[in-house]
Design a protein around this nucleic acid. Structure first.
Length: 258
DNA sequence: ATGTCATGATAAC
DNA sequence: TTATCCTGACATA
């Protein structure tokens, strides 16, 4: 299930099996109407921008996918024969078949739409190079709670609900603190930790934030605070609340207001 | 069989 | 703020 790390990992894995390949593209469910326009075309490459996945074709066209909360892009060995016809997208190269189910978006973008996507989505901690200034500016100008800002994709593209909880806990930040009251130094720490954790997430292909937790660790052992009952550091009962219209878990002792 | 919950985002009020 | 879209796993009955 997808936060930014999942999408970046998919971009990497898909590239291995699709780039330079002529692909058969169809829409078994019929809900990706433009599938036929890509059928038989050659994939030029793949990219992740925050939680958005782009699969590039000729003429600056790109297949744009956003998994939302439920979406999955599943890989199948060849030959793949499906009993179910619920996939919105099926894409087969000489190496594998990939099927898309449950996504919130799957459409064909032209160059202009890709540009608009880039403008709409903010700095991605997993992107190379310096982070965009606009990220801090938006953050610093906001009266909204930090806990809400971490989910704002125009500020931190790729962070989702689990990473939000883990980052705030690991840095001891009160989720209710207003963005405009957060020091630059703290913001920098958030960014750096997001990058580190998301990178680890890409490698493990899952979210692991506890140092030393193995790739097979249970969720309980892999995470600090998300869905926990008590704080592993101080034993305080973890607060479960709603912030930014998502469930937030935090420790009122370790993440005390300041 | 039915209910609940989930790592997301947007349009409409 | 809310309603809505997307699917599946698991719990409960």
């Amino acid at each position: 299930m997808p936060e930014g790390h999942t999408i970046h990992r998919l971009a990497r894995d898909l590239a291995l099996e699709l780039t330079g390949e002529k692909v058969a593209v169809s829409s078994p469910s019929g809900r990706f109407v433009e599938a036929g326009m890509l059928d038989g075309e050659v994939v030029r490459g793949t990219r992740a921008i925050g939680k958005h996945l782009l699969i590039d074709f000729d003429d600056d066209r790109a297949l744009h996918i956003h998994l939302g909360r439920f979406g999955k892009l599943r890989r199948h060995d060849l030959p793949y024969v499906s009993a179910k016809e619920n996939a919105r997208l099926r894409m087969t190269s000489a190496k594998a078949t990939w099927e898309l189910v449950g996504a919130i978006q799957c459409d064909l973008y032209d160059k202009q739409q890709v540009t608009e996507l880039r403008e709409r989505v903010g700095g991605d901690p997993l992107a190379e190079g310096p982070r965009p200034k606009a990220s801090w500016e938006r953050f610093h100008a906001s009266k909204r709670a930090v806990g809400a800002l971490l989910l704002d994709q125009s500020i931190f593209a790729g962070i989702g609900n689990i990473y939000r909880a883990e980052i705030l806990f690991m840095l001891g930040i009160d989720p209710m603190q207003r963005g405009c009251d957060v020091e630059k130094k703290t913001y920098d720490k958030i960014w750096a930790l997001a990058r580190k954790l998301l990178k680890a997430g890409v490698e493990a292909n899952r979210i692991i934030t506890v140092k030393g937790a193995t790739a097979r660790a249970s969720r309980r052992k892999a995470l600090h605070i998300y869905k926990k009952k008590t704080c592993g550091v101080c034993g305080t009962r973890v607060v479960r609340t709603e912030l930014g219209s998502r469930t937030l878990y935090y420790c009122p002792t370790c993440q005390r207001p300041r």
